[in-house]
Amino acid sequence: MIRIENLSRKFEVGNQIVRALDHIDLEITKGEYISIMGVSGSGKSTLLNILGLLDTPTKGDYILSGINTSEMNDDEMAHIRSTKIGFVFQSFHLIPRLTAAENIEMPMVLAGIKPKDRQEKVEIALSHVSLNDRSDHKPEQLSGGQRQRVAIARSIVMEPDVLLADEPTGNLDSTSGIEIVRLIEDLNKAGLTLIVVTHDRKLGNRSDRLIRLLDGKIINDNVK
């Protein structure tokens, strides 16, 4: 489903050129559960951003569901992000002035889906994360774990193919962290491709496949 060929991403920092990703090849099949690990600066976040079409490679190809994304314009990439990719962030990234339900609704609002259809899907997403009774709470009225559950509900409401999670438990205590991990693992078992970026070894070891990055290169790719 995902194929990355000879992909590089360089940044210019002052006069220096930083190779965040250096000639990477990677293939991911549908339904996989992958952890990407590495020290900070190893390029794991850059890889996730490129997988999520938030960033574009300097060189090389990223083929998603048979489409070469390097030929896409901004709007087409936005469309892919909307329909095929779900994001979960370390700091949740909920819109503070909107309720839980409205936050979950946002991707559908942007996609121009009718309000009637949206409600139904919000209900389903809320029950997936067991937050039906918190639907009209603002983020500030929710605990960290609950906020991340809202974010997960938002990420799956458009029924994407891939869920990209960037340190999903980084801002949570261990109990809510485990809850969140179980939640996204359940989604994976239901068929969603799950890619988690983390530096938490325990979390990384739970996945079926562990990819280690160092200095922009894949140094380890273990399938259990």
Binding site: D74, A78, S82, P107, R154
Partner: peptide, 9 residues
């Protein structure tokens, strides 16, 4: 965030 969840420019 809006861009990440599919907002066009």
């Amino acid at each position: 965030l809006l861009k990440a969840i599919g907002a066009k420019n």
